[in-house]
Structure formats: structure tokens, C-alpha cells
Design a protein around this nucleic acid. Structure first.
Lengths: 743, 743
DNA sequence: CTGTGGGCTAAAGGCCGACAA
DNA sequence: TTGTCGGCCTTTAGCCCACAG
């Protein structure tokens, strides 16, 4: 008996071709109807934020991708380095022509983070987003096989690994001489593929014959690519592919994903942020580029850890055979990637010298959240089962709830689960209880020590979203590692929740100014005031050394000039105060509000000079693109910011009160307590500025004074003798007086 | 003997595939190395501006395409309806995957039009751009065949029409039993295709066998598509395709062409215009959408013609079998397509009621330059040779100079040559002198009456670029038709060239104000001052009737309030004065300049109110995207423009001098000489305004006065009772006092 | 003159077990 | 257990002419 599969019945080929064209036209991408399959195709390291969760959007990262791709460096913008957003929707999608998986994140800039944080009373919502929680989804019966030359030749079919076939395919009637059946598997686009599955040969083996080559041809598979079969909980067979040579390297980006990469996409996003509309980010999980939308908890975690030069770090890396391999290296520098345009950003602020075995082309800059916690998961290595080089396959616990969970609100993140990673990579064969059991899901509690581990980790992590710990930056991961959980809980309780929240909110809203000399390293404040440690005024005169990140950097700070006598650290010449703004687009409003409520430890502060004048603010929020030819400053006050290399924040300066360059230099010297240093270039300091027109950097003093006043945007003071390298790394061994960028 | 073609020699298939991927990666489009082939593929109606020539860019048209495509209606802009540009480069290109031809026009906004016009002393440069000049290129030996079912089946090869084979292919040795040879033809991407060409069968016929099906497969040809062979002057064979079902209808736009269609492309263009940088426009000649980059001469020609309601018009149309078919219809209306955002634009300002045999989906709005001159070429019909339904083919004059001409500066426009059209369409078989002559180009002067016709037409057209005639709008095409050439030459000489030019330039530069009551229909001014007739102050109170276009509308005018008593036409209550600005991006500068040099007939004029205040201007030129949330007007003078339906230009009004709505209405009535009409809505007039934020139209009087002053952008006075339809057609039968839009 | 179809042959596709790593 | 190969059969590609519109 011959089974004739994949025939085009009565439809003629033309009609089919037309249908396909039609499908392509209307949905260049298709919504993934099987999240398990999507995640399986996406690979083990993929983590996606959940619908409803909070993320941090890094315009700098977005722009970086665009610029790298299309040299859109001329784009001008006025966005803060970080924008807190809520994920409105997560759509798992796949390119219709390549099957490339990607996610469409619908995101809304959310200055209601405070409300969100208030909800952390029931932190369950956020927990789902954390890796390794007990919410990890059921892992379906699946296997993944890298195609051999024989598999892809036109000469034969597909050789199915025996256990894989037994696990994932419906059982055959082995009594027959040559048992065979028709398999129907759906791909990412829900398209059905039919295969003849036969068990034959001497010795006997499982083969897919008829229908296989059609699949190979249509998907343009070559040996080295992998196919992946997955038996869903509904019993349906799913079929995905994971290409060896990433398609995107050979092809232009697929249309929907490519939308990220046009300058327009950035304009759209900026527009959406400013107008509080939802915007979409397309995330290709298999791309090597850094993500510029980072889950909130991940970002918080990184804030909560300390990084120091010389510290050993590792970055998870997906590779063919194991998920255990990582890039490892040493932190060799910590500084802004672009201190001109994105001062205070943490985007890829860590410079890493990779170990010798790491791909030499590896990007040497990483963001703090990309680095794996040094201690977590270390215990999970005892879970790894040394696997022989065989088909990758897994049958594990499955949760009946999962279908519900998958349906509505996006797929729970299981990217963080190393266990899941390992099984996807074929390193583990777990709990293969009933190979042919298509109806009775295994008991989810059979995982013994695995469960225990996950539980422990989630206990550990549960403290993270607690704003007291993470936002105040008191508890570094180092502390977490060494301090028993009880201590963590103590921290959690050290301040009334409502009180701390409202305080935090006020800070976020720019309604309160907080400062302290307490270093984050000091850990817990002496008890009275957990707000201390929020940020570190000593940092400015410290040379490059281990520093903790702190919440100060979470929002682009506002720069205030305070004449209050209430700082006891008179040794700090440039004591700085910061107002954290939760939403830059409300700067203007908040600023006027701030006048009446800015206070530090209860002492009101006067704002002597806001960021710019009203016009400046209005212009910056009103325009995303500054395609200015004749932009001139209005008369009256002419406020400009001065940044000093090594100084955390800038200082405002009103040019209208100055009568020339000498005056200006003098003023700057006073502002930064460096009297006499700037007058003589021999001292190694350079004063430069960017203009309002196109951001070019020029030397202060070259232009006529009035012209300068008209076009200056910001002024920068650099220690490094070479002003061309001002965006370069400052590792602490610069010239005399070289400062340290601390953010 | 068997010829084995298209074998992959020693290279393995993988290597070839890699090469192809590589090629795709680096050049999604490829530069066309054979302009003849490109034009042949583009089809008969394609005309492209020449490198170095002057074109008019219509932002409105560009935006229209974008909006139609991606609903980017939220884009805000501040560009004039027309931008004069110089074509810096013309690249003929073809999509690598579809072979779709398109042109990349590199364009530079050029306020140096004056310099250009000065060069019209030797109008040769511009002449090249005109249709039908003696510069028409050689038309190579070529044929075009629509593929039959047999041609595209896997069963056989390609049946070559006998005469086509004899004309285009090297001759076979017919003495042999089955003469055959290998043909090598290069496609648009310069890729070689090899075919076995054999002459066999009973009766004998020419066939392409081996290699043909590979071509069909690779190019995804189906029956109905056309292939096109072309023997270049160098003897090389070229090969192109023209698809029946336009690919773009089934597929997303090809990447490079699609660049036109993103909002970003528009932003880029606007940016480039404002910053005087070169920008690129991608033009798909086979697309049905209107072009928004129009050759200068074409635009001038249309200015020079008159259009009236009820006039019969025809639009050239490419169709399968003949180039003679046209869309015909009657002009049923003349008005702005979008009088709010693009007042005074001529973009698709003609409303046409098509004849019954015209596709009912046909767009009913056309631009003046899309309409064919009613009389030209009518004499060329005697050139048409009734062709039988056979292969389309042509052998004609070729010019040895042409290879040089093609190489350097873009391909000379031969799109306007109907003769070329006809042969491309296979309607003509001309001058087949020496079918096998591969070395001796025919004498270019053999064209007898064709030449004569072209010569006559170019004589006729030579008067067009003359600024005296065309720019002053004195000589309508009607005049041209009826007046002997000598009269035209008289016009040409009626004023010293330098004098007229400098005068014209001054007007373009906004340094001179010109006005007159002389209607364009009045023809030549009484001699003393050809500047008169420049625009028509009587138009405001004329009902819809035949009008000529005039140069006033060529640039978005500036609106000045002049209190000079030097207007003798006191009967015109709303005498308007216009400063023509050649470059809007220099408005601000020009405005201050204008203060000292604006004059009318030598009388200096005072500017009482520029377009807005300084801030307004700076903002409008500085920002393309106005994503404004809190844009407010500054204190002090608050200037707004008032437009009245039926009036050519607007009037400025300073709201800060008014104390309320009554005052405002009164002022408007006075401005437009319509005292008492606006107070009572019963009179049929409505006063509405758009706000600065988002351009919504609202009724004047609804808001509190102060609020209104803060947010008003422009004020419009409409006669039509229905204010919702203000962008609709005004056909002259509106309410009492209904005006006529004249541009 | 040229579109279509049948005859024919070569090449590719595809199913099988043998064999060996 | 499974990757590759040779054997063998089927399907498709592709060259040819006959025939007819």
C-alpha cells in the first residue's frame, strides 16, 4: 500500500500559488498559535517580558542598532536614557517566509510606575517575570535534531532518532512487517505538513519519507539546520525549525523585524513616548544584538549588584552543544558609552576584557543586566546529566493550567530556567516515564531536587522587586549572597511599606530630593533612614574603583544648584543634588510643581536654575527631530549646562549674566572648584561645547562670544588631553585631575 | 552534437548559492548597466528627468503616497507645495529579486534656479529634457514577446518569432540540417544567461531550448509575462522582462522603492530640503501612482496652458496592444486637493469626469502636467503603421554618439517620444534595412518626416523655457497653437533677457513685489511692463471659468499687509500683494532683507506683519515633525493668517491688537471688503480656524477668546454652508458670494 | 508562422535494504 | 543506533516532430 501525501488534490498549482501570495501579502508575519513551539524555536536563552509587566526601554540601545545598520547618526532626539514602560501586549510571531521567530512587544511609556509599584503588595504579577519561579511552564514532549547530509539530500528521507519517534509520534503497530502512518504536524504559521512515518530497514529504524523533501525544499533547509518536533498537550504535533546559519546574516532583515531598524521606527517610538501612545518593538530572540527593552526586574537586579574593575563576569551564551558555556572575562572599565548624548546611561557601560577563549570579535561592552549573577544557579550544575551525542529530547512535567496561561496574556517567561535550557539543548533526558502516554500528564511534583532548587531561587528572588531593597540600593547582590534570607526579610520589613513607597514615589515624581554621603557599600543605614545610600556624593573625587550602581542613575537627573547649608560634607566642593523624574515629558509641569515641594530631609530647596528656560523645555518635549537651520535662542536668560568629566551631574550656567569667555571660564572653575585650572591649557583641561544645530563638538573660545551664546547647547570640561576621545573610556589613569565617570 | 549549457562546471551548487546570497546582500538593487534595456523594460510611457536638469518636487504628492500606504496622516510638516530642485544624479536600477525597474533620483533643493535660468541662454541643456527633440536616442534592435503557455511550460522551450530572431540574434548557418548556436544575453543586473538557439521543426522555426526553463524558473515567469531581447550597439545581447501582473500588487514594495513610502522617507526629504542636502526619490515607472517629481519643462508647459471646466482632456495610457489609447474625459472642476494644508498647490488640482470607457476606478484628479497637450503630436498619427498581431520589433536609426551620451550623465529622456513608444509596443516596424548588420549603424538622418515633425515640435517647445513667456503666464498654449512661431519669438525678444531675468529672479527671491489687475487672459501687457499679468487680482470675484495658471502659484506666497496708496485698482477691495520666495527655508533671513528692498513698481512697501513672529518662523523652519504637547504662543504680537475662500492669498492679522471676537470678525470683514457679511451666519459665510496643536478645524467663537488666541494657527473664511466640506470641490455654484479657488 | 501536444530519452527524485561507524 | 551508499523504480525535464489554426 502506498500512501500518497502532500498531493495538491484538485486545486491546481496556480491557485495554490495565488493563495500563498495572498497569505504573504496580508501577513508578512503570522501570530504564533503555539507559544511552546515559538519558545522552542527561539532557543533556550530567550526571555520575554510578560504582558502587563514593567520594562525599561533604552533609546540609546535602539538608536545604536539603527545607526549600526543605516548610519542614521544624524538623528537628533531628546529622550532620557531610560524610559519605564508597561508591556501592553506580547505577540509571538514568525516571519512567513523564513520562519524566523520574533516577538512584537507593544509598550506604553508609563509614568504610573508608582501605581504599579504599589501593586507589588501582591508581587505575584511581577514574579511571573522572574526566572526560575515555580510558574515555569510545562515542557512538552519534543525533540530537536540537527539535519544530516542524508536528511537533506534529495535521495532519501529523514531519519528519526528512535527515542524521539517513540516520545513524540503516535505509536506504530509494530506487529506489522513495515508499520507506517501519516503524521500531520503544524508549523509556526499553523500550516499543516504531512509526512509518511515508516519503521523499516535492517536494523529497523524510524523514517519520514514521503512529504519530507517537500518540507525541506519549502523551508529551504540545509544540513546543519535543525528541525524540532513537539507534541502538544492537545496531542497535536508541532514542527519548527532553527537555522544553523542565521538567516538574518545572509538576508536583509525580515520586514517586520526590520521595522526596528529604520530611523523612522525610532522617530515613531519617540513620538509615542512623548504622546503617551503605545509603540511596538520587534525583538528577534536569536539575534546577537543587545536588547534595548529590558525587564524591570532584570534591570533592578543589576542595580542591586555591584560591579568593579577587575571583577570576573560571565555572560550566558547559547551554543550548539551546551547551554553551560559562557563568555567569561574581567571588567576592565566602567563608563558611559556616550557621555555626550547619553550621560548617565547604563547602556553597555561595562567594558569587559574577555578571556582568551572568547570570540575575539565579541563586543567588549555589556550592560550590567546582561551579566549573570555570580552565585545564583551555581548549585544547579548538579542537575546536569552528562548526555551522549544523541537526539535532544525531553519529557517532563506538564501543568494542565498552562493552556489557559498561554492563551490570554502572553507566554510566561521560561527563558531564565536553566533546566529548560538544558533540555532544549538535548543535554538532559528527564523523567521519561510513559513514552506513549498521550493523555496522562506526569505529576508536576516529580522533579524532586529540581523543584527544590527552583523554590529556593524564587524565595531568593522574591526579595528583589521589593522597592526597599532594590530601589534604595542598600542590598547589593554580594550582600544577598552572603546574608541569610532572614536578613533580606529584615530589610524588607525595615520600613513600613506604604511609607517607603510613597517616599519612593515622591522621589520618582521629582517632588523630593534625596542625598547622602553614604556609599552604597555601607549597606544598611544606621537604621533611622533607609533613604540614605540612595546615592553617593563622595564618588566625584574617587578614582576608578569598585562602585555600586545606585538608583540615582535610573532617571536622567535634574541639575539643581542649591545653596543650602545643610550638607555636612563641606569637603565636597561640588555637592550635587538630584531630583529624580519619573517622566521626562512632564518635566515642565513637574518643575513648576517642584518649586513648592522640593525638599531634602524635610528642608525645602530652592531651585536656582532649572535645566533650561521654558522655551528650551517646551521645545525639547515638542520636537523629536531637530532639523534646525536657524534655531536661535530667545533673548533673556540663556541657560546652558556645564558637564565636567568625572562629575556625576552637570551644573547650569546663565550665559546672559556673563560678558565674555574669561568670565565664563572663571565661572566654570568656581562651579567645579577648580580655580585656575582651566585658564591654562597646559593644565590638561579642555573646555568644549556642542551647538544647538547639529551637536558638533567645538572648542569654547573659537567663536565670537555672542555667536557662541546663540548656538551653545552644552559645555563640557574634559581632562583628557585629546578632546577627540572624549567619548572614550576613562579608566582612571588619565591626566592630572582626571576624573571618573560614575553613574 | 549536443550543446550543454548552463552547467555548473566545477563549482558546487553551495558555492553558487553563496555567491548569490552575497550579491543580494550587497546590492538589493543593481545599477542598470544598459540604459536601453532599462527603458525597454520600463515601458513606453516612462520619462525621466535628466541629470542636471531642474525638476519640481511636490511634497504633497509624496505625502499622499505615504499616507495612502501607511496612514501616516499624523505627520506634520512645513514645506511649500513646490520645491524647485536640481537633479544631481539619475540612477537606473532594478530590484535584484524581481527585476522591477525603478529610478533613483538624487535631488537637491535649488534656490539657484535663477542661475539655472540664466543658462537658458544656451537652452540646449534643458532641451534634452524635452520630448521629441532630435536628441532622441538610437533605438536598438529589440523585440518583446508575451509568453505563451508553451513558452513557460516545463515541457518545452521558447518559440522565437522568426523576424525577431533574424533581427536580434546573430545569424545561423542555414545550410546545416539543424543550425544552432549558443546565445549569451545579459539581464538588468548584468547577469549572463545562456540559451541554446536552434532552428528546427517542420516547418522550421527558431527555438530557445536548453537554458530557457532555468531562466523562466529563476525569474518566476508565468505565461502572460513578457520577455524582451535587445541587441545593443556593441553587439551584446540584452534580456529583460516585463511582468503582466505587476509584481508590486502581489508583493510588498521592493525594498529600495519602498523607501519612498515610509514616513521616514518624507522626513528625510524634508530634512534634506531644509538643510540643502541631496535627497533620493525612488521612482517606479511602472507604478500607476502619480509622480511627485516633475520635470521643470513639463511643469512650465502646464503653467503655460489654460484649463477650464468643461474642457476635454486626455491622459496617455500604456496598454497591452497600443500606445494610442488614452483616458479621455472632461474637466469638471478646478480646485485645491487640500486647501488647508497645501493651499495654492497645483497637485492634482484638476477634477476630471472620465468618459464611460475609462476604468471607473480611475482617480478623478489629475495634475495639469499629466494631461497631454491637446494639439501637439496630432500630426504624428500619420506615422503609425497598422501592425498585425505579431512580434513587436524595431530596427531604427542609431546614433554613434549615444554610447557616450548614455555613459556619463544619465540616460537621455526618450519617454516623450511617441515614436519610440509605438515601436516598443510593437505597433511599428521601421526601417529594417540590414537585418544582419551588426556593425554598420543606419544613418540617423533617414527618418525623413519623423525628423521633420520632431524638429518642428522642438522649435515650438523652444519657446517654453523662456521665462518671459512661461513664467509671466502671458502666452497661453492656446496662443501658442494659434499664433505663428514668429509671434512667439517676438515675445521672446520683447524684453531684454538679462533685464527680465534679473527682475524675475528678484521676484523669486522675494525682493520685489509685483502685482497687477491684468488677467492672464489679457495676454501681452501694453508693452511697458511685462511684469504685469504676473497675477490676477480680479480673480477673487470671478466665478468658475476658464483660467490660466500663472506663476504666482509657483511658490507659496508671503502675505504682506500694505497700506500703500499706490494701487490704482481701488475697486478691488482686497487687493493683495505677494512676495514670491524662492526658498522658504530662507524665509527668516529674507524677511529681514525684505524690509529694505520690498518694492512694488519701484515704490517701497512696508511690511506691517510678517507671516508670524520670529519664534513662529524659527520653529516652523526648524522642525519638521511637530509632535507638540504643550506648544503655546509667546506673549506679545500674535499674528495669524486669514484665508478667504476665493481669494488667492491670505491676510495677516494681529490678534494681540484685538479684544474679542466681535473685533476680530469686524477686522476680517474689512480685510476682505465684506463688511457685514460675516456677522450673520445666515449670509452663508463661516469663519473657522485650525489650531497649532493638531490642525483640527474648529469654529471661531466657540472657545474663550484668550484660549482662542493661544491656540489659533490660521483662520479660514468659507462661503460654503457646510464647513465640513471645505476641502471639497468648489465648482462655482456655491452659496451667495461663493468664490473661486484660483491658483 | 507558431502554439500545442505526443513520443521519446535523460536526469532527478525517492523508496528500499546493506553496511559500518 | 543511525549515517551513507548502491539498487531500483517513478516522475519530471526537456528535445524532437506532427499537426493545425
Amino acid at each position: 500500500m502506498r500512501i500518497d501525501l502532500n498531493t495538491i488534490d484538485e486545486k491546481d498549482a496556480a491557485a495554490v500559488a495565488l493563495e500563498e501570495e495572498e497569505a504573504k501579502k496580508h501577513t508578512m508575519m503570522s501570530l504564533c498559535l503555539c507559544p511552546e513551539l515559538w519558545h522552542a524555536c527561539a532557543g533556550p536563552l530567550v526571555s520575554l517580558p510578560k504582558k502587563g509587566s514593567v520594562v525599561v526601554y533604552f533609546p540609546q540601545g535602539h538608536l545604536e542598532q539603527i545607526c549600526a545598520d543605516s548610519a542614521a547618526g544624524h538623528l537628533r532626539f531628546d529622550l532620557p536614557p531610560r524610559v519605564f514602560c508597561r508591556v501592553v501586549d506580547v505577540k509571538l510571531q514568525a516571519d512567513a517566509s523564513t520562519d524566523e521567530v520574533y516577538a512584537q512587544l507593544s509598550i506604553l511609556a508609563d509614568n504610573e510606575v508608582k501605581n504599579h509599584l504599589n501593586h507589588v503588595e501582591s508581587p505575584k504579577d511581577e514574579q511571573d517575570d522572574l526566572p526560575g519561579t515555580t510558574n515555569s511552564p510545562a515542557i512538552p514532549h519534543m525533540f530537536c535534531k540537527t539535519l544530516t547530509a542524508s536528511d537533506t539530500s534529495t535521495h532519501g528521507g529523514f531519519s528519526v532518532p528512535r527515542r524521539a519517534a517513540e516520545d513524540c509520534f503516535p505509536p506504530l503497530d509494530y506487529i506489522q512487517q513495515r508499520p507506517s502512518q501519516e503524521l500531520i504536524a503544524k508549523d509556526l504559521h499553523n500550516k499543516e505538513w504531512r509526512f509518511r512515518h515508516i519503521y523499516r530497514g535492517q536494523p529497523r529504524r524510524h523514517l519520514l519519507t514521503t512529504g519530507w523533501s517537500a518540507f525541506v525544499n519549502k523551508k529551504k533547509l540545509v544540513s546543519g539546520d535543525a528541525v524540532l518536533f513537539l507534541r502538544g498537550l492537545d496531542g497535536e504535533l508541532r514542527l519548527g525549525i532553527r537555522r544553523a546559519s542565521q538567516f538574518k546574516n545572509n538576508m536583509p532583515f525580515s520586514v517586520p523585524y526590520g521595522r526596528n531598524l529604520t530611523p523612522q521606527s525610532f522617530v515613531d517610538v519617540a513620538n509615542a513616548i512623548l504622546t503617551k501612545k503605545v509603540f511596538d518593538i520587534y525583538h528577534n530572540p536569536r539575534s546577537s544584538s543587545s536588547e534595548f527593552v529590558v525587564p524591570y526586574w532584570k534591570f533592578l537586579n543589576s542595580l542591586n549588584r555591584s560591579f568593579s574593575i577587575g571583577m570576573r563576569v560571565k555572560v550566558p551564551l547559547e551554543c550548539e552543544d551546551t547551554s553551560e558555556r559562557r563568555y567569561t572575562g574581567l571588567i576592565s572599565g566602567i563608563c558611559d558609552l556616550d557621555s555626550i548624548r547619553w550621560p548617565g546611561s547604563q547602556w553597555r557601560c561595562l567594558i569587559v576584557r574577555w578571556d582568551d577563549d572568547v570570540d575575539p570579535n565579541r563586543q567588549d561592552r555589556v550592560s550590567p543586566w546582561e551579566i549573570q549573577p555570580s552565585s545564583s544557579f551555581s548549585g544547579s550544575s548538579n542537575l546536569s546529566v552528562p548526555g551522549s551525542k544523541r537526539a535532544k529530547m525531553v519529557i517532563t512535567s506538564s501543568n494542565p493550567d498552562i493552556s489557559v496561561n498561554c492563551g490570554g496574556r502572553g507566554y510566561p517567561d521560561f527563558g531564565g530556567s536553566t533546566r529548560f535550557h538544558r533540555v532544549l539543548q538535548g543535554q538532559e533526558i528527564l523523567g521519561c516515564r510513559t513514552p506513549y502516554d498521550w493523555s496522562d500528564p506526569p505529576n508536576p511534583h516529580h522533579q524532586s531536587d529540581v523543584e527544590g532548587m527552583h523554590h529556593r531561587f524564587s524565595e531568593l528572588e522574591r526579595s528583589v522587586p521589593d522597592v526597599n531593597n532594590c530601589m534604595l540600593g542598600i542590598l547589593s547582590s554580594r550582600n544577598v549572597d552572603r546574608v541569610p534570607l532572614g536578613k533580606s526579610k529584615f530589610m524588607y520589613k525595615s520600613m513600613g511599606f506604604d511609607e517607603s513607597m510613597s517616599r519612593f514615589n515622591r522621589v520618582l515624581q521629582g517632588q523630593e530630593i534625596v542625598s547622602s554621603k553614604t556609599s552604597a557599600y555601607d549597606g544598611v543605614d544606621d537604621g533611622g533612614n533607609p533613604v540614605s545610600g540612595f546615592f553617593d556624593t563622595n564618588s566625584w573625587n574617587m578614582r576608578a574603583m569598585p562602585r555600586s550602581f545606585n538608583a540615582t542613575a535610573m532617571q536622567q537627573p535634574y541639575y539643581l544648584n542649591s545653596n543650602q547649608p545643610s550638607f555636612s560634607n563641606s569637603n565636597v566642593g561640588n555637592g550635587v543634588q538630584t531630583v529624580l523624574m519619573s517622566d521626562f515629558s512632564e518635566r515642565q509641569k513637574d518643575f513648576s510643581d517642584a518649586k513648592t515641594c522640593c525638599r531634602l530631609f524635610g528642608f525645602p530647596l530652592n531651585i536656582t536654575a532649572p535645566l533650561g528656560n521654558k522655551q528650551d523645555l517646551s521645545a525639547s518635549s515638542a520636537n523629536v527631530l531637530k532639523i534646525d537651520t536657524n534655531q536661535v535662542k530667545p533673548m533673556g536668560r540663556n541657560c546652558t549646562k556645564v558637564y565636567k568629566e568625572g562629575s556625576v551631574v552637570g551644573r547650569p550656567i546663565d550665559l546672559s549674566k556673563l560678558d565674555g569667555y574669561d568670565n565664563l571660564i572663571c565661572e566654570i572653575e568656581q562651579l567645579f572648584g577648580m580655580e585656575g585650572l582651566l585658564n591654562d591649557p597646559q593644565n590638561g583641561w579642555h573646555v568644549v561645547y556642542t551647538d544647538v544645530k547639529d551637536g558638533y563638538v567645538m572648542v569654547v573660545g573659537d567663536d565670537p562670544w555672542q555667536e557662541f551664546c546663540r548656538i551653545v547647547s552644552k559645555i563640557m570640561v574634559y581632562a583628557n588631553g585629546d578632546k577627540d576621545s572624549m567619548t572614550n573610556t576613562v579608566t582612571g589613569d588619565g591626566g592630572p585631575g582626571a576624573g571618573v565617570f560614575v553613574h
